[in-house]
Design a protein around this nucleic acid. Structure first.
Lengths: 216, 216, 216, 216
DNA sequence: GCCTAATCGAGACGGTACGTCGTGTCTTCTG
DNA sequence: CAGAAGACACGACGTACCGTCTCGATTAGGC
């Protein structure tokens, strides 16, 4: 992941033990009480080894989290955009409300605020690709006529993910499936007369790169 | 705020100096590098005094943040629901993208994940009241016929706030006014045929208290 | 004792409660864990009141200790110098090996090293008078012919008290009665040919005021 | 000394800097104002390192003191027991009346009263060996006929050291050489008819191990 | 199948901050 | 108006991790 010196001689055993120990400790004591010291002790690995391959605790956690997350929230195309969005959002919600992954992601989000490298890694490796994938799925639906032509797709994706993050960071109970269904249908409905607010032709850009350009 | 022993003998001078020092240090060094030690030194206050009145750094920050925040995001009723929502959300966005308040809130959200008391305090003192206020304003609009009768108001509020939190926690650039306008109009439009997903009569409950009850 | 502002309005109740609490705490937790805070709490007395009447913890302890000590080691004259010395030293040994008085005195000796006022008080109120009394008793014996004329009486007193202090400060078991008896008889015997080392006429001075003057 | 985990990887540089800083600070500010915090700062050593190798401030001081003390009070055998005892006692007196060693030892004696580990260390490492050495030297003199056969040697050593400790703990001026000479000659003379109080054959036991056994 | 260099475990090190405790001063309220 | 109650600034405590740094002892490739 963010590991700098890629080496053939690296011990896979140490890598695994470190990632496993990190998640175990996260389950047992909560993200805040996980320390590099504790991970090293639990994994039977030297602190130096951890620092050699990861720049911070957050980076260890991100690698451990990503390994699992990518498989847990697949993007399928069954032809029914509403169903596919529900499936995807439900996957994300479930992931984020299951220990140790929920607390782990919460911790990662925490550390992004004072760790620029971690922030970049999260956006590039985790959030960016999935955001684009979601926009891509919506564009496919657009081509099939399930979504109006001029719809602001990035905004739609933010309206879908937004409430999930909202509840997660505020430690409010995660959405149940009915709520996710309501959310998806509201978002799709909101795109109906989208031509008014966002004239046709706005691209499905990642919002991080600026909004003004995407609108008039 | 979360101050435990409310006392008449408390020194207002110490309280002010502490809160001011906390925000100053947050501006100068970033939330992560603010310590109780540093706040005490800067404020000319003893650590013991800080610990006497606040349980943690997060609690100090929350009090300092809340003091300013409540004044910065007023809820007015001009009769135009779209305009009022834009005003409110713009206020929140601006607050959250202005140092030291943005970093301070990010830090508070961080600490909520491993500090149950702080989490409770944030919800009770900050998020809860404003969420209810937003729902209340929407209900007013509902009575004036600007919003359909059966609309799921709490869901609407989450769709408004969600994207703001999404960008904030992911350190993505905050919304500009055009984006906020688009967001508000999408959300209002999504409520149009709301009768489908959320049958009439659902109350404007805070989602933290459960979704299932609010839906069939 | 070292109490500065002598006042008629002083509360005897507070004085008693303070001294009693000090000795109680000394028994229960040991001198080192006795604090002004704890004394105040135990005695139901305000810290300010303690600081008003005593300059330090050691001063409180000294007053409490002295109250008891003076009555416990009387100086009698039965006509038999050896028996009287044994009685006196045995009294001191017993006092110093009985809680809370032994630990209390040890603590007082400790604090003398960094508290000049306390050191002065101990010498003037406790040690000086008893040292002089011991020299006086020996001088009486000298006049009765039980001790040689030219004997160095202050030195003899130091040789008597010295081993008691030695064991006390080193926390070695206190002397039993047989050892005290041996000590006394050795010291008296050592005075026999005293004229050799210390020519006649050496006065019974407190050694604190200098040795050279007392010898040629 | 009392250093717990003996390690080959220990930094001698840190050890030296710590001991030196401790004595320097003792000279400059007095034992009572020396803190682990200050020693660490002065020595350029972390507090953790100090706590790793010594259990307390007293232990640091004891090691620093002992290093110097053993060299400063050698036990020689010139064949003249009186001269040798004078040499030894004079060395101890001088050591104990010279900053920073006098105050350091006073402080150590202080802390022995509430620190059992330190008390044990002082007896085992400092007092015990030197006490035995003194008894040994006297036994040598006994074999040469300079001291009577049945003399109570441990008692004699206590009568020698006792007055030194007495003056030291009471902060009374230390003995000058004439007084030491008088003391030595008195003690030797007191052993003359020793057969009375301590019948022949009593061994030269360290008094800490019990008195009654050494006498009838 | 050696050899040699990277990698490993272990853990000492200089630091920074933690949260607690005691000090001695002070202010406020009560009997 | 002395005294209890206790807030206050200060400073040290002993602990926990940080990230860096030696140390031998494996443990692979490349020869």
């Amino acid at each position: 992941m963010i590991t700098s010196p890629s080496s053939l001689r690296r011990s896979e055993r140490s890598r695994r033990a470190t990632l496993d120990a990190a998640l175990e400790l996260c389950t047992e004591k909560g993200y805040g009480r996980v320390t590099i010291e504790a991970i090293a002790a639990r994994a039977g690995v030297s602190k130096k080894t951890i620092y050699r391959w990861w720049p911070s605790k957050g980076a260890v956690m991100l690698e451990a989290f990503t390994e699992v997350f990518v498989g847990a929230t697949p993007f399928v195309d069954t032809g029914d955009i509403a169903a596919d969005l529900r499936t995807h959002i439900n996957g994300a919600v479930k992931m984020v409300s299951t220990p140790p992954y929920g607390p782990a992601y919460a911790g990662i989000l925490s550390e992004m605020h004072h760790d620029d490298d971690l922030a970049r890694a999260v956006l590039e490796q985790l959030v960016g690709p999935r955001f684009e994938a979601a926009v891509g799925r919506l564009r496919g639906a657009q081509e099939q006529g399930q979504v109006p032509a001029g719809a602001d797709l990035p905004l739609a994706v933010e309206m879908l993910y937004g409430p999930v993050y909202y509840r997660h960071v505020l430690r409010t109970p995660a959405q149940d499936e009915a709520t996710v269904a309501a959310l998806v249908s509201h978002v799709l409905r909101s795109l109906a007369g989208a031509g008014d607010a966002a004239p046709a032709g706005t691209p499905g850009e990642v919002p991080a790169q600026g909004d003004a350009a995407a609108r008039s």
